[in-house]
Lab assay of single mutants.
Amino acid sequence: EQRVMALYDFQARSPREVTMKKGDVLTLLSSINKDWWKVEAADHQGIVPAVYVRRLAH
């Protein structure tokens, strides 16, 4: 499974989004949309801005 790391803090503004802190490692579920990526963090799935995360090497 692909992982991403948060580059910045992000506060969810809707139930579809995921709140994350800089340095958090999340599971990447989908990167089809270039602006918003779907991730999973602590059993919560949602979207985060793609520019706020970076793919981690396997």
Rank of each mutant, 00 (worst) to 15 (best):
I47S: 05
A57T: 12
V4P: 00
D43E: 08
Q45E: 13
I47N: 10
T19R: 03
A41N: 12
A50F: 11
A50K: 05
H44W: 07
N33V: 02
P15V: 06
A50R: 13
D43Q: 15
A12M: 01
D43L: 01
P49L: 01
H58A: 15
R54L: 00
L56N: 05
V25D: 08
F10G: 00
T27Q: 10
K22H: 09
V48G: 00
V39D: 13
D35Q: 04
F10T: 03
P49V: 02
S31V: 15
L26S: 04
H58S: 13
V48D: 08
R54G: 07
P49T: 07
L28Y: 03
S31T: 13
S14L: 01
A42R: 10
K38D: 07
Y8V: 15
T27M: 00
K38L: 15
V53T: 01
D35M: 07
D43H: 14
V53H: 05
G23D: 11
P15M: 00
L26W: 03
V51A: 15
Q2P: 01
Y8A: 15
A50E: 04
W36H: 09
R13W: 03
T27C: 05
F10P: 04
Q45Y: 07
V51C: 14
P15L: 04
F10E: 05
L29N: 07
K38Q: 13
Q2Y: 14
A42L: 14
R54K: 14
R54V: 07
S31F: 07
L26A: 07
V48Y: 00
P49I: 09
A41C: 13
K38P: 04
W36G: 03
H58C: 13
V39F: 05
V25C: 11
A41D: 05
V25L: 00
Q45K: 13
W36K: 05
V25K: 10
A6R: 03
G46W: 08
L29W: 12
M5D: 04
V53E: 09
L56V: 11
F10S: 04
Q2E: 13
V25S: 01
K34D: 13
S30H: 06
V4A: 00
Q11M: 10
K38E: 14
A57W: 04
D35S: 13
Q2F: 14
R54T: 12
R54H: 15
R54S: 06
A50W: 01
L56T: 08
A6T: 04
A42V: 08
L56E: 06
R54N: 05
S31Q: 14
P49M: 03
L28N: 10
A12V: 01
E40I: 05
P49E: 01
I47L: 13
V4Y: 05
V48L: 04
G46R: 06
E17C: 01
K21G: 05
M20F: 04
R13A: 10
K38M: 13
A50S: 13
L26E: 07
Y52T: 05
I47E: 03
V39W: 06
N33E: 12
V39R: 01
W37S: 00
K22N: 07
Q11G: 03
R3W: 11
Q2A: 13
A41M: 12
V48M: 06
Q2R: 08
S14K: 02
S14W: 01
D24Q: 15
K34Y: 08
F10Y: 15
S30T: 05
L26Y: 11
R3V: 02
R54E: 10
V25I: 12
A6W: 03
Q2G: 11
E17M: 13
M5G: 02
A6C: 12
W36Q: 08
M20S: 15
L7K: 11
D9M: 01
M20R: 00
M5C: 07
A42Q: 12
M20Q: 10
T19E: 03
K21R: 12
P15Q: 08
Y52C: 15
P49G: 08
L29S: 11
L7P: 03
M20G: 02
Q11C: 09
H44M: 12
D43R: 04
P49A: 00
F10V: 00
V53C: 13
P15N: 10
